[in-house]
Computed example of a mutant assay.
Amino acid sequence: MTTLSAPRSDAEATTTVVVPLAGKAYDILIGPGLIARAGAEIAARFPGARASIVTDDTVAGHLAGALNASLEAAGLEPQTIVVPAGEKTKSFAVLETVVDGLIAQRRERGDLVVALGGGVIGDLAGFAASITRRGMRFVQIPTSLLAQVDSSVGGKTGINTPRGKNLVGTFHQPSLVLADTDALASLSPRHLRAGYAEVAKYGLIDDAPFFAWLERNHGEVLARGPALTHAVATSCRAKARVVVADEFETTGARALLNLGHTFGHALEASTGYGERLIHGEGVAIGMAQAFRFSASLGLCAPADAERVAAHLAAAGLPTRLADIPGDVADDETLIALMGQDKKVKRGRLTFILARGIGEAYVANDVPPDAVRAFLATERTL
Results as ranks from 00 to 15, higher is better:
A336N: 13
L375S: 03
V59S: 01
S9N: 05
R134A: 07
A36G: 14
A233M: 05
V149K: 06
L4C: 07
P302G: 08
V153W: 10
L112C: 13
K345F: 07
G274H: 03
V18F: 06
V19E: 05
L267R: 11
V94G: 00
D100I: 10
P78Q: 15
V177G: 00
P142A: 08
G33Y: 05
E249A: 02
R37S: 10
G118L: 08
Q173C: 02
A185R: 15
Q79K: 12
G101H: 03
T250S: 12
L124A: 10
D150H: 07
S52C: 07
I159T: 01
G219R: 15
R346Q: 14
E41W: 14
E359R: 15
E87N: 01
I357Q: 13
A129F: 08
D246T: 07
A309S: 13
D331Y: 01
M287W: 12
K239L: 11
I53S: 00
R254F: 11
V18E: 13
E198Y: 14
I352E: 05
T350N: 11
I159K: 00
T271N: 01
D100R: 14
V242P: 15
F293I: 04
D57H: 13
V114F: 01
G252D: 03
P325F: 03
L204R: 07
G158H: 00
G23W: 03
A373T: 09
I335K: 09
P318S: 05
I30H: 02
M1N: 12
A315R: 09
A314F: 08
A223N: 12
V242T: 07
D330V: 11
F92Y: 06
T16V: 15
L222N: 09
V19T: 14
A104M: 04
P189Q: 13
L222R: 02
G195M: 11
T16S: 09
V114L: 08
S235P: 10
G158V: 04
H62E: 10
A147F: 14
P368Y: 08
